[in-house]
Design a protein around this nucleic acid. Structure first.
Lengths: 180, 180
DNA sequence: TCAAATCGTTCCGTTTACGGAACGGAAACG
DNA sequence: CGTTTCCGTTCCGTAAACGGAACGATTTGA
C-alpha cells in the first residue's frame, strides 16, 4: 500500500549519525543483523517490535523517540540567563518506591532552558496544551504540539524551549525513584 | 531472552475489553487477522510495526499506549469512551502500592458523562487546559477553568461535563491503590 | 431444545522479516 | 599503487508473522 515508514528510517539514521556510530557498529551493539538495520533505515522493511527495542536500547533512547512524530528542525538556540520556565506544583504523590510530582509549566518563547541531569531513573512526562514545545535530552530533544505527549529519561542534561513566537504551556509529571 | 512481550498482550486485551469490543470485531476494524490479534494478546507473537499501528489506530490510542518502555509492568484498568468523554491513555506507572494512569481527555459540550464508583482509595486529578470543565462527585462537582486543577475521591459516582458551548480538554491522572 | 451466530484459539500455506555472507566502493596503511 | 579494513547495500536460506479457514465452546434466538 505505501512506501513504508521511511519516517522512522530517516529519524533513526539521524539519531545514529548524530552519535557518530556506523551502521555496522550499531547493528553489532544492538545484536541485530546489518541487513536488518540497513533495511530499516532505508524504509524497505517493516520492523518487528523486538527489533525496535533492540535498536532503541542500543541508542539509549526511549522507543517513543523512534516511533514518535515530528522531524526535529535544527536548534536556533538563544541562550538567555534567567528563568525561561516557570512551574507550579499541583500535586505530589509519595509512593514507597517513587515520588510523583505533577506541575503546570510555562515556557517563554525565544529562550532555551537547560536543566542539569537528575538522578538515575528519573523520568519526565510532558503533555503540551498550548504552543509548540521542544523538550527532552539536550542531544536529542523531541517536538510536541498541543495535545501531544512526550517522555524521556531525565538522568542526562535536558532542555526546554519553544518553537515559534508563542509561549508554551504544558503539564509536567516527574517520576523519581526513591533513593537506594 | 524472551517470555515474549506479554505485557503488551495484557495491556492490549485490557484496552479492548474496556471498550467492550470482541477480538473478532477489533481485528476486523483494524484490518488484521483474528489469528494475529489473538496471538498478540496471548504474547505468542512478536508483532510488526505495521500491525501495531493498525491496532493502535483501531483502538484510537497512541502507539505509545501499547508500547510502554521496558520497566513499566502491566497495567490496571483503563477507563474510556462513553458518548460524552473520549480519553486516550498516555502513560501507565506501576508502583508497588498504586497504579498511575495518565490520560488526555476530551469532553463534548452539552452532555453529562456519568462514571460509576471506582474502588476505594482511587483518586482522580484533572488539569484543564481548554474549555470550562465541571467534574467530581456527582453530588458535589467542582468547576475548573483552563490552567486550573481539581482532585477528588473517585470511590463514589462522579460526573464530567462542560460549562458553556465549548468542548473541554484536560489531562487526567488516576491513582489506584493496589488491590489487597 | 435445537439451530444459528459469535466468541477466542489453533491449524496451515503464504509472505516476509530475519541474520550471515557476499558485494562494490571508499578510506587508511604500507 | 596493491592490500587491508571498514563502510552500507544486496543476495539468499531460514524462521516466523501474517491472514483465511476450521475448530470447539458459549451465547443468542426462534
Amino acid at each position: 500500500m505505501d512506501g513504508r515508514n521511511t519516517d522512522i528510517g530517516s529519524r533513526l539514521r539521524r539519531l545514529r549519525e548524530a552519535r557518530g556510530i556506523s551502521l555496522s557498529a550499531l547493528a553489532r551493539s544492538a545484536g541485530i543483523g546489518k541487513a536488518t538495520l540497513s533495511g530499516l533505515e532505508l524504509g524497505t522493511r517493516n520492523p518487528t517490535l523486538e527489533t525496535l527495542y533492540a535498536v532503541a536500547g542500543a541508542l539509549g533512547v526511549p522507543l517513543t523517540a523512534l516511533v514518535l512524530e515530528p522531524g526535529s528542525p535544527p536548534t536556533e538556540a538563544v541562550r538567555v540567563p534567567g528563568a525561561a520556565v516557570t512551574a507550579t506544583l499541583l500535586e505530589v504523590f509519595e509512593e514507597p518506591t517513587a515520588t510523583f510530582e505533577l506541575l503546570r509549566m510555562r515556557v517563554r518563547p525565544g529562550v532555551v532552558q537547560h536543566s542539569p541531569p537528575h538522578a538515575p531513573g528519573v523520568t519526565e512526562h510532558v503533555t503540551v496544551y498550548a504552543g509548540m514545545l521542544r523538550a527532552g535530552p539536550a542531544d536529542a530533544p523531541l517536538l510536541a504540539a498541543p495535545g501531544e505527549h512526550i517522555s524521556w529519561q531525565a538522568d542526562v542534561p535536558h532542555i526546554y524551549s519553544t518553537v515559534g513566537p508563542d509561549e508554551a504551556l504544558a503539564t509536567l509529571l516527574i517520576r523519581s525513584p526513591r533513593q537506594t
